[in-house]
Design a protein around this nucleic acid. Structure first.
Lengths: 109, 109
DNA sequence: GAACTATTTGGCTATTTCGCCAAATACCCA
DNA sequence: TGGGTATTTGGCGAAATAGCCAAATAGTTC
């Protein structure tokens, strides 16, 4: 695979790491601060192994970092810049559907 | 599906719309200005129908808008905020792998 | 209106992703 | 060392996605 294509795929992988409802939820929660896997499991309400795989994927993409404290493993965002990332997302798809002040026509930016 | 879950899925869909090498390439190109489908087809070097489906998906997610001028249909970004979005991406996964000034260890933010 | 061009849609197969279960691993503490 | 807790990994079936071809559509020009 060409360098250019590999880079393109890597970049897409980073986005893919957030392109799933559960993973997006995790990323949003981690903006508040780090969490251990068991808490994240409660947050997304899925099987432990499913959550673990989501976290592994996100870490592999460079989106998350993890660290062990005592018995638990804590995950946190690897990058501060997600505020920008998610801010843009909010303009296109608001977090709370009912709170949308304007009409149904998507009025972005 | 609950409102909350639907919103979450919609938000993920927006990100998904960029989570593919070809679609990311298209979005990056459109930051320079609008393009017609045939030019985009040359850009991503794929079958016309494949490109069209990518574009439809991105428009459905609210990422792109389209307009007809003469014979051609022109697509453009529906939102200015992608600069932030992609700026964050650049911090995690640089556009050009070789130009990476630091060592291989990912030093984000 | 017929031929032509640009784009979209339908249908199909191949590939990838998802999420559960069960098993494995890692690590702490008695 | 051995039991216990937290997390990861392997495997599998189900669902979603990708990309090609062929056919349909829309709109233009003659």
């Amino acid at each position: 695979m060409s360098d250019r294509k590999a880079a393109s795929k890597k970049r897409a992988a980073v986005i893919k790491a957030l392109a799933h409802p559960s993973r997006l939820l995790i990323a949003e929660a981690l903006m508040e601060g780090e969490m251990c896997v068991c808490d994240i499991k409660d947050l997304v309400a899925a099987d432990m192994s499913t959550v673990s795989k989501h976290l592994s994927l996100m870490r592999a993409a460079g989106v998350l970092a993890s660290e062990k404290h005592g018995l638990n493993i804590y995950y946190r965002l690897a990058c501060d810049c997600f505020a920008d990332f998610l801010g843009c997302l909010d303009q296109i798809a608001p977090r709370k559907p009912k709170t949308q002040s304007r009409s149904k026509t998507k009025s972005c930016c």
